[in-house]
Nucleic acid binder design. Structure first.
Length: 191
DNA sequence: ACAAAGATGAACT
DNA sequence: GTTCATCTTTGTG
């Protein structure tokens, strides 16, 4: 299974967000399978890129396939992958992983044992993988990162994004159906 | 210069 | 369900 190339990310963030589910993300060999994502683009009032380029969101307006890392609530780091053509200001927030590799390192960094709580949330997974501002702007097809496509999930679910006030009704949060490693359960989908 | 909000998580009632 | 730690970025005067 080869590395995902920048071309994989050179398209609509919503499509990338869906297609990233099932992909393995590793940082220095530590990580797991992406089970939850959210899409953001620059037409989107909830996105950091909505009001154009700034010092913080510079990576979002760079080439696709790179990291955008920002500080959240003064405490946590959040990890995104830049999408779209160059300078379009779209990205996918990685919200949760199913831990697979380097469990001991993650447990040490998170000071807890339960695999379900190691990477279930954007701030938790950056702590578990030791992602910080040092990674902002780095390409994801080179060390310390590794992104390898895995089996396509049987089914995915969608729902409103978490923790935003603008465009709170847009269902751009995606998850692997039935995963016990997501940050929160998805709303029941009416038939 | 200042204030407010924020793509969160943990602890607590 | 609520509170709060903690601090950068951004908008406003």
């Amino acid at each position: 299974m080869g590395q995902l190339s920048p071309e994989f990310f050179r398209r609509d963030a919503v499509d990338v967000a869906r297609d990233l589910l099932g992909t393995r993300l590793l940082v220095d060999g530590v990580g797991g399978v992406i089970v939850e994502t959210e899409a953001y683009d620059h037409e989107d009032p909830a996105s950091h890129s909505f009001r154009g380029p700034t010092a913080r969101n510079a990576a979002m307006f760079g080439p696709p396939g790179r990291a955008y890392v920002y500080r959240s609530y003064g405490i946590h780091w959040c990890f995104n992958i830049v999408c779209g053509a160059d300078q379009t200001g779209s990205a996918v927030l990685i919200r949760a992983l199913e831990p697979l590799a380097g469990l001991a390192a993650m447990q040490e960094r998170r000071r807890m044992e339960d695999p379900r709580l190691l990477c279930a949330g954007p701030g938790r997974l950056t702590q578990a993988l030791a992602i910080t501002a040092d990674h902002d702007g780095l390409p994801l097809d080179a060390p310390p990162f590794r992104l390898e496509r895995g089996p396509t999930p049987e089914a995915i679910v969608a729902g409103p994004r978490i923790g935003i006030t603008q465009a709170a009704d847009i269902p751009w949060r995606f998850g692997i159906a039935g995963s016990r490693f997501v940050s929160r359960r998805f709303p029941a989908t009416p038939k």
